[in-house]
């Protein structure tokens, strides 16, 4: 199915947020996930289902002034 990840349309083959993060090889400790404009705490990643057309923002804190 196709969802929008960080502003880009991408085809993914899983409906599980945890699996997607795992597939993308992202560091879970620093990852901030916004799913359809709602922040998803790490303990809810496993129960968050992705659906066609969803909008996902994968963010992290970086250096800034």
């Amino acid at each position: 199915m196709r969802i929008k990840i960080n502003g880009r349309d991408q085809d993914i083959d899983t409906g599980s947020l945890t699996e997607l993060i795992d597939q993308m090889d992202l560091p879970p400790s620093s990852l901030v996930v916004e799913h359809n404009l709602r922040l998803v705490p790490q303990d809810q990643w496993a129960t968050t289902r992705l659906e066609e057309g969803d909008v996902l923002e994968l963010l992290n804190f970086v250096g800034g002034g």
Binding site: N6, G7, M24, D25, L26, P27, S29, S30, L31, V32, E57, L58, L59, N60, F61, V62, G63, G64, G65
Partner: peptide
Amino acid sequence: ITVALRRIDQQSKTDNILD
């Protein structure tokens, strides 16, 4: 101390600034 929030960069895996 200030920090910024950005979309994750899959190419350059950076350290977690909060660490």
